[in-house]
């Protein structure tokens, strides 16, 4: 099945499940739902907001078929955006009902004397959802460790879904028909199924797929390269540019998982080693990764992602990497060199200074093995720097790309600012959007 068809089917299923409570309510017993349009509007917002919340679990559960159609980083962004939409709907839900005459004190204050289980669960679910979204948006500013946030995020989300369901069932107004009861159960089954799949089944399947650290070497740019080998299994081959979720610890059930791109070539023979390059961003990458030593166990779930030149055939490529976004691009160059691929590649590498150019030596070594031009662009170079300065922009690009660049594909990977700038600028200078493929490194 083509990716386009698969994408349409997945989105169709998503839309159907979002609208399912509305459709079922209309078909089953419309006269009992609401006495006025305003109340009906509030109820409708609650229905769709709840469905969106439940489906948030599906967007990040790494279902390979869906991820292949959209890209895991796109699904993650969609998850983030629709989470905020769900919050908006679920905030508007009580507001409209209160305007319609529902007593605010009973519905918003779980400790009020007039509050009951239905109102308390509604209020607590709403406050938990607000907390969930705020801690996600402001995690770094609030200084919350990723691992702590990851656990809290999952628990809060589960609480919101369960408390909302209790609210719906105790209220009883929208569970009077068997069809409506089935609809709410569909979401329960979906959420429980996805949590079990993601947190239990996938780790169990990975139980016999242990990996071992062979080497842990320091790289420029406060990064480390981990060379891993599969233990008792064949490991995997991957499309250059893809990533995997890494875990440290004795079992694959640890909660902290980290999306890290492979930096080695993708055509790995059975049992072959795979290399990951990890930038120190604090937390796990700054504390646990440097402490890893040869022989230590790691868990690798992958490969994932659609960011690969293998999926974007062209006469040549322009790669634009910033920061640790260079790792998937290095993997692509390495693979092309190993394959003897003669197509030209121009690689723009944005970094702060000479010291922060991770994998530059390896990339320069590849220029003798393939048709590769590496253009480092430094925003804060030393006085001795002879190369490009500032940020990767159209003028710098024009100086280095060949005339036939309109036949090339652009693959861009890096921090948010670089991605935003490139996604806006490239179409403006005549590079059609379909020639540009991006991957964001702000998934978590």
């Amino acid at each position: 099945m083509g990716l386009m068809v698969r994408g349409i089917l997945w989105f169709g299923m998503y839309l159907f499940l979002v609208l399912l409570p509305l459709i079922t309510a209309v078909l089953s017993n419309p006269e009992r739902i609401a006495p006025s349009p305003l109340v009906a509007l509030g109820v409708g917002l609650g229905f769709v907001g709840y469905a969106l919340m439940a489906l948030e679990f599906a967007l990040i559960s790494r279902i390979k078929s869906a991820a292949a159609a959209f890209g895991e980083d796109a699904l993650q962004q969609f998850h983030n955006t629709m989470g905020m939409v769900a919050l908006g709907f679920l905030l508007a839900h009580p507001i409209l009902l209160i305007i319609s005459g529902y007593p605010a004190k009973c519905w918003l204050n779980p400790f009020a004397s007039c509050a009951n289980l239905a109102t308390r669960t509604a209020a607590l679910a709403l406050y938990a959802l607000i907390l969930l979204v705020v801690t996600s948006i402001l995690r770094k500013k609030l200084g919350i460790r990723y691992e702590v946030w990851y656990v809290l995020h999952g628990l809060f989300a589960l609480f919101v879904v369960v408390a909302s369901l209790v609210h719906i069932f105790i209220l009883g107004r929208y569970t009077t028909t068997p069809a409506m009861r089935v609809v709410w159960l569909v979401y329960v089954v979906l959420v429980i199924g996805l949590v079990l799949y993601h947190r239990i089944l996938v780790p169990i399947l990975n139980w016999n797929k242990k990996w071992e650290v062979v080497e842990n070497r320091v790289e420029p740019g406060d990064a480390r390269t981990l060379v891993l080998k599969p233990v008792g299994h064949n490991g995997f081959s991957f499309e250059p540019g893809q990533f995997a979720w890494l875990k440290t610890g004795r079992t694959p059930f640890g909660l902290g998982q980290h999306p890290i791109s492979m930096s080695s070539g993708g055509d790995v023979p059975p049992g072959g080693q795979v290399t990951f390059t990890v930038k120190n961003l604090g937390d796990w990458s700054g504390q646990e990764v440097p402490a890893l030593k040869p022989g230590d166990t790691m868990w690798v779930e992958g490969p994932h992602g659609v960011f690969s030149m293998d999926r974007e055939q062209a006469m040549g490529y322009v790669f634009v990497g910033g920061g640790i976004g260079i790792t998937p691009l290095h993997s692509m160059c390495q693979t092309m060199a190993e394959r003897g691929d003669p197509r030209p590649v121009v690689l723009f590498y944005g970094a702060h200074d000479e010291e922060s150019l991770t994998l530059l030596e390896e990339l320069q070594a590849l220029t003798s093995r393939m048709n590769l031009t590496v253009v480092p662009v430094l925003s804060h170079p030393s006085e001795d720097w002879q190369g490009e300065t500032g940020y990767v922009n159209v003028d710098i690009m024009k100086r280095h790309v060949p005339k036939q660049v309109k036949w090339f594909k652009f693959l861009i990977c890096g921090p948010e600012q670089l991605m935003d700038a490139m996604e806006e600028v490239l179409p403006a200078v005549g590079i059609p959007p379909q020639n540009v493929l991006t991957e964001r490194f702000d998934m978590v």
Partner: peptide, 30 residues
């Protein structure tokens, strides 16, 4: 997929959902 495309797509979907909710409200309260 582009970040911009995802944002636009989510925006369009949100509008579609609001329209669906309004239609729902009109049907069930009429």
């Amino acid at each position: 997929m582009h970040h911009v495309i995802v944002k636009r797509f989510a925006g369009l979907l949100t509008i579609l959902l609001i329209v669906a909710i309004v239609v729902f409200a009109l049907i069930v309260s009429s």
